[in-house]
């Protein structure tokens, strides 16, 4: 009898829907435009409303990313690695939520979605490990024909706009985002247009780990609408076109040429594979310093 009562009471509870919001400068604003759009699962069932960002949201995100760049790029690589590892820890705690969201977004079975989430968390850990090792792989001392110490070191490019892959809404997203921030860049992520929910939930994870506000900014909406002002923005240093189709990618590349942005063209990628360091080096610049060896050089015994 009492059990039956319990059940009816539970059924009467009102559902509490989640309001998905943007993530800009460490805060969760609604779109400046006030617009939202309906997000459905792979079968067309309504899941939630997501903010439909405007170009002004993109502009605000660039300002936030620029502001965060000094602190994040100035942090030691070791520290950045710790912060990224912390993100993986936080993701682990929300494994069930992401499994559900990925299953809905990509039409996967629960066990397949769980495998994707596991792979995603492992991807964070993988990139967290790279933060203080990449400089040793792509930088170092160069032998030169003169009395100089010649040192090359990789430096972050700056503010990077990332168009997240359209199909792989979580693993793909992390596979393009993590390498950008691991090397000290700050990012503006345009989430997958049809399945933005994992990206917007990832923002909540980033906000509760130790990633400073503004290092990652997440926008949802029409990719073409948000990406266009980002590609022509004079204060964005690079753009990853992973989530753009062929026509859009061409347009964006033309707009990006205006201030000589670094452009990473879309390419077929299997996000389940171990990624290699291509995406890490895509948004690095090499600084080379020639340092005279002084009296040693004069006496003919340089090095």
């Amino acid at each position: 009898m009492s059990e039956k009562n319990d059940k009816t009471e539970r059924a009467e509870r009102l559902s509490v829907f989640k309001t998905y919001k943007l993530y800009v400068g460490g805060k969760f604003p609604r779109s400046e435009s006030g617009r939202v759009y309906e997000v459905t699962d792979s079968k067309g069932k309504w899941l939630a409303n997501a903010p439909l960002s405007s170009r002004k949201d993109a502009r605000d995100a660039v300002v936030a990313a620029r502001k965060a760049f000094g602190g994040w790029s100035g942090a030691t690589a070791y520290n950045r690695g710790q912060v990224l590892y912390r993100v993986a820890e936080m993701l682990e705690g929300r494994r069930d939520q992401f499994t559900r969201e990925v299953a809905d977004a990509e039409g996967l079975s629960k066990s397949k979605a769980a495998a994707v989430v596991d792979a995603t968390i492992d991807r964070w850990v993988w990139y967290a490990g790279w933060t203080d090792k990449i400089a040793q792989v792509v930088g170092g001392g160069n032998p030169v024909a003169g009395p100089f110490f010649n040192l090359s070191s990789p430096e972050p490019t700056g503010v990077v706009a990332v168009l997240a892959p359209q199909e792989s809404s979580f693993l793909g997203l992390v596979s393009v985002l993590a390498p950008v921030i691991a090397t000290g860049n700050t990012a503006i992520v345009v989430a997958s247009e049809n399945s933005p929910l994992p990206a917007l939930s990832l923002a909540e994870v980033l906000a509760t780990s130790d990633v400073p506000g503004g290092v990652v900014n997440v926008l949802s909406g029409r990719t073409a609408e948000i990406a266009t002002p980002l590609a022509s923005h004079q204060d964005v240093n690079a753009i990853d076109l992973a989530g753009a189709d062929e026509v859009l990618a061409k347009e964006l590349e033309i707009a990006a040429a205006d201030n000589l942005k670094r452009v990473l063209r879309p390419q077929p990628v299997d996000y389940a594979e171990t990624p290699g360091i291509d995406r890490l080096t895509a948004f690095l610049e090499t600084k080379t310093v020639w340092h005279p060896t002084g009296s040693l050089g004069a006496s003919g015994s340089a090095y």
Partner: peptide
């Protein structure tokens, strides 16, 4: 002003 003239957002580098 640069934004109004060119239609693209400017930055502190300019």
């Amino acid at each position: 002003r640069q934004k109004l003239a060119t239609g693209r957002y400017s930055g502190p580098d300019y």
